[in-house]
Design a protein around this nucleic acid. Structure first.
Length: 587
RNA sequence: GCCCUCGUAGCUCAGCUGGAUAGAGCACCCGACUUCUAAUCGGACGGUCGCAGGUUCGAAUCCUGCCGAGGGCGCCA
């Protein structure tokens, strides 16, 4: 355990048990402090229980506090805060934990099989900003949860089924694909060409559907045929799905997102179990027929006029909608994938729907045994005008264009700096910075709020941005590269000797990585990790300004400070990696 | 009409589940570059935490009611 706060919390609990045995299991309220390294606020709450002045209780706690081996003598301040400063030699000793692969982060004491549902783009539609947040936030959470020891199962719930496929298949036929012979292998090139611009393909299908009643009729019939298992329809549908999957995989590679084909589990995956899902729900008495549709009415959900709100499991025409698919997916994740936690990284507008799905699943007993399903909600991406982010023409912004612009803007930054990077390296670094900027902008503020998409802010070289963190990291690496080889060799955590205040502060910051990662995972809040990394970087630059690393004559000082640089670079890079962001050694 | 989310400096955002004088960045102003990468750092300025009550030793944080913004409310996903 590397986190001084956690060590102090244990001691504080022991002291509380001495002063008031009934509070042994209470929170000692150990917090970072502006007035010391750490403050213990337990006395204030205890004073109320005991009916005594808080400062007296604080004094008793201090008397009972066995902490000399960790901290300087405690001080009672204000109404009863206990201020603690961690000893420099203790900090130095704790830093050795950061040289292990977990960087001082404790594995979770409650490991789960966590299914993370994220990204979920639609087949035959181009990915756009709407998919950006789910993909980026979901990926960061999946990486972070896996890091602390959860068994993470990524699930990409592709929109690969439903009514739009009628018109998409008809559009394919009208474009010259022969339903009888079309196969993925034989026509892959043709198909890829036909729907190279997925947005245009979808839009033209939509337009024809709206303008041409004959086409619309064919489309509707095609849906029926597809759902009935008609071989020609299935073949064409498969063509669309395969083409899109290749496109998605390219997009994820480009975005450096950890999703692969292995994680694809589209809606169609559940087609053959929908009957069984309905049968099980029916057997448990959870379904009633209402207006011809088979509905569940989980308690606590009302719509207009206080009417109970239905979750429509089977439509009046006998077809299945997304509620059925979502229920089937949930059951599959619990029963087949062994999920004990289910995370749905889905936009806020679907909140009610998901809560209803969870409620029905709970009634069905699928969440028994403490299995937890949670909607990891997020707000919209807004333009700088405060409205939904769109192009000037009013279209949705394509993900590919977004990435291109991010990378080219980042390349512009590098050009302006005229670094000594080779062209290949510069392109790679530009990609890391551009993608990092976009991802970090998305991750660094509270996900439940809407966020404003602004190139200038996310690519800013100052403030809480990825480029700033990446630059700070590169400077650390640069110092390490310039150090004498024998110093670099000796610059391990064991070599750290803390003397300066800036060194003390940096060590404290480094040891906070554990708490930051757990805040990120427990609260599904990547922005907590971002805030931590930014504070680590600013603490480092204060150290960098105050403490020359390579210049001191004393090799022990050089090696100690070099070790602090190396540890900071490692923690920063590890943290960014958990967010899905690279930290190049040079920029 | 009902339900959900949000409202913190001019702007963009934090605020660690109730603790000390509410913190950063941007912008504006002042200061520091023959640099360990100045893509930086230090300082100044800037707040009735939407409004009004309530809970208590103590509220941006919890409760109630308003105001404002966005979203949802039967066979699309």
């Amino acid at each position: 355990m590397a986190d001084p706060l956690a060590l102090i919390a244990d001691r504080a609990r022991a002291a509380m048990a001495v002063v008031d045995p009934d509070t042994a299991d209470h929170d000692p309220v150990v917090r970072p402090s502006q007035h010391a390294d750490v403050q213990v606020n337990a006395a204030l709450a205890m004073a109320k229980r005991l009916g005594r002045p808080p400062r007296d209780v604080a004094a008793d706690l201090v008397a009972a506090l066995d902490i000399d081996d960790l901290c300087h003598p405690p001080e009672v301040a204000g109404p009863g805060f206990i201020n603690l400063t961690v000893r420099d030699d203790v900090l130095a000793a704790l830093l050795t934990d950061l040289e292990h692969p977990m960087r001082g982060v404790r594995p979770t004491d409650d490991p789960h099989t966590v299914v993370v549902d994220y990204s979920a783009p639609n087949v035959a539609k181009e990915m756009h900003v709407g998919h950006l947040r789910s993909t980026i936030i979901g990926d960061a959470l999946a990486r972070s949860l896996a890091f602390i020891g959860h068994d993470v199962v990524r699930q990409n719930h592709l929109g690969d089924w439903g009514t739009p496929f009628g018109m998409l298949i008809e559009q394919l036929i009208d474009s010259g694909v022969d339903p009888a012979t079309a196969t993925t292998a034989g026509t892959a090139d043709t198909t890829a060409g036909l729907i190279a611009d997925l947005n245009a393909f979808y839009r033209s299908a939509r337009a024809t559907f709206d303008d041409d009643p004959n086409f619309a009729e064919r489309s509707r019939n095609r849906v029926v045929a597809l759902q009935a298992g008609d071989p020609d329809s299935l073949r064409l549908w498969q063509l669309l799905v395969d083409t899109s999957k290749e496109y998605f995989s390219d997009a994820y590679r480009r975005l450096e997102v950890s999703l692969t084909e292995h994680d694809y589990a589209g809606e169609s995956t559940y087609n053959d179990v929908l009957d069984d899902v309905v049968a099980e729900l029916e057997a448990k008495g959870l379904l009633v027929v209402d207006d011809g549709a088979l509905c569940a009415f989980p308690p606590g959900f009302t719509g207009r006029d206080d009417e109970p709100m239905p979750l429509i499991v089977r439509k009046a025409d006998g077809g299945y909608g997304y509620a059925a698919t979502d229920l089937a997916a949930l059951r599959h994740r619990v029963r087949e994938l062994g999920a004990t936690e289910l995370l749905y990284v889905v936009g806020a507008p679907q909140h009610d729907h998901l809560e209803m799905v969870f409620a029905v699943a709970g009634q069905a007993g699928w969440l028994d045994g403490g299995i937890d399903a949670e909607h990891v909600s997020f707000g919209s991406v807004l333009g700088e005008d405060g409205k939904m982010f769109r192009t000037r023409a009013g279209d949705t912004v394509r993900l590919a264009e977004l990435v291109d612009e991010a990378v080219s803007r980042a390349a512009g930054l590098l050009d302006a700096k005229s670094t000594g990077l080779t062209a290949d390296d510069a392109a790679d670094v530009a990609s890391a910075i551009g993608l990092g900027a976009v991802k970090y902008a998305d991750l660094s503020s509270d996900r439940v709020k809407d966020y404003v998409f602004a190139w200038d802010r996310m690519l800013a070289l100052t403030g809480n941005t990825a480029p700033y963190l990446q630059y700070a990291h590169a400077r650390m690496c640069s110092i390490l590269a310039k150090a004498r080889p024998e110093d670099r060799q000796a610059a391990t955590a064991q070599a750290v000797v803390i003397g300066e205040a800036a060194e003390h502060d940096l060590a404290m910051a480094l040891l906070g990585f554990d708490a930051a990662v757990h805040a990120c995972t427990h609260r599904r809040a990547p922005h907590r990790l971002c805030t931590y990394l930014y504070e680590l970087a600013t603490t480092y630059t204060a150290f960098y300004e105050a403490c020359p690393v390579l210049r001191p004559d004393d090799p022990a000082v050089r090696r100690s400070r070099l070790a602090l640089c190396a540890l900071t670079a490692t923690v920063l890079a590890t943290g960014l990696d958990l967010l899905g962001i690279r930290a190049p050694e040079r920029v």
